[in-house]
């Protein structure tokens, strides 16, 4: 009797907390602000800035500077490099969110959805986000090896290009998916 009593109390407390959280989210997308893009906004926009970021974060650059500039300037440079890394990580996260959002819209407008694919995506996105937070924290604390970010960006760029090719093949339909992403009311749009 006691166990059942506390079990149901705990369950209701949990349900109410998750419900309040879900209400907050649903309010947010009840009236979404349409993004300005008219084409499918594929991740990979950071690629244009990759050489500059790579340069800014390279260890040789830092070593070269450390031998020639005063300590204060070096500290400032280190701080700025950290800011660049943090900004870059934030951009990666933004790209992930765009990617996941595109996948959601495609799923919601598909006549058939594979539960396995959907579950896998939820787990992958959750996995990415908690790792991202951990890495961000370590970069912020000054522990992370900044040049390693290059690998991450290479990976993103490569996949961006591949996905972009796949999307180009889809032609007009892909562009219409983007319209649906940006539309506050998807029902008004008739892609065909």
């Amino acid at each position: 009797m006691n166990f059942a009593f506390y079990f149901f109390l705990a369950i209701i407390a949990l349900l109410v907390v998750v419900f309040l959280w879900s209400l907050r989210g649903s309010k947010k997308h009840a009236a979404p602000a349409p993004p300005p893009s008219s084409s499918l906004d594929l991740p990979g926009g950071h690629v244009a800035y990759l050489p500059q970021i790579r340069r800014a974060l390279s260890s040789t650059d830092y070593e070269y500077a450390s031998a020639r500039i005063p300590r204060q300037a070096l500290l400032r440079m280190r701080r700025e490099r950290k800011q660049v890394a943090l900004g870059y990580l934030a951009a990666l996260r933004e790209e992930l969110i765009k990617l996941v959002r595109t996948a959601k819209v495609i799923a919601s407008l598909s006549p058939k959805v594979a539960p396995k694919q959907e579950l896998e995506r939820v787990l992958l996105a959750a996995n990415f986000l908690w790792r991202y937070r951990l890495i961000r924290l370590s970069v912020w604390a000054g522990f992370a090896p900044l040049p390693q970010i290059n690998d991450l960006s290479n990976l993103l760029s490569a996949y961006s290009v591949r996905l972009e090719e796949a999307m180009k093949e889809m032609g007009e339909r892909a562009a219409l998916v983007a319209e649906m992403v940006s539309s506050p009311d998807r029902r008004r749009i008739h892609p065909v």
Binding site: L99, V100, S110, K112, R121, L124, L163, M167
Partner: peptide, 16 residues
């Protein structure tokens, strides 16, 4: 479209 893009997006997330 779903069949081709969904696994592509998932594999990209996996690699990421």
């Amino acid at each position: 479209l779903y069949r081709s893009l969904s696994p592509a997006i998932n594999s990209r997330l996996k690699a990421l």
